[in-house]
């Protein structure tokens, strides 16, 4: 197995630890992307992130992969810190695999964390926006109704 693959595997493993332990074997084990959308989101996107971090650091691809993850984490039952903790899980993983983390890689991870933070906020804002949109729509129809229980 390539170093990259090992890093991905361990990172996925660590990141999934943020879910209750009863879930680990399913989230980590089931490979069907439609039966296990959460696990698959992690596998696919963390692999893409590692590829970019160790490679050319293509901003667009990073944003795409991060989006998949952050969008999911932003609606699950996490505090912001818990939701984005998976980014920082990468440090110990790389430490384990290659002993030390080079300075450029450190700053790439920092950059990743900042991007994740931006995306997290935009997801949360999106959620509230969507909520307001729904409320507004219902309010409009309810006004048309004006009836309801006395």
């Amino acid at each position: 197995m390539s170093v990259e693959a090992v890093i991905v595997e361990r990172w996925v493993d660590r990141a999934l630890k943020s879910y209750p332990s009863e879930m680990h074997s399913f989230l980590g084990g089931e490979k069907d992307p439609f039966r296990n959308p959460v696990g698959n989101t992690f596998r696919e996107n963390l692999a893409a992130l590692v590829h970019e971090l160790l490679g050319t650091m293509d901003k667009e691809k990073i944003a795409g992969a991060l989006d998949g993850l952050v969008r999911l984490r932003a609606v699950q039952n996490f505090t912001p810190g818990e939701a984005l903790h998976f980014v920082f899980d990468l440090r110990p993983v790389i430490g384990e695999v290659s002993g030390a983390i080079s300075d450029p890689l450190q700053s790439r991870i920092d950059e990743l964390a900042l991007m994740a933070f931006d995306q997290y906020m935009s997801c949360r804002e999106r959620i509230f926006e969507l909520r307001i949109n729904e409320l507004r729509m219902w309010a409009r129809s309810a006004a048309a109704g004006e009836g309801g229980t006395p």
Binding site: D32, P33, R35
Partner: peptide
């Protein structure tokens, strides 16, 4: 059943 696209071969899932 599993999605066929996940694996190329027929695999008995858990």
């Amino acid at each position: 059943n599993r999605a066929r696209m996940a694996e190329k071969r027929l695999i008995l899932g858990e």
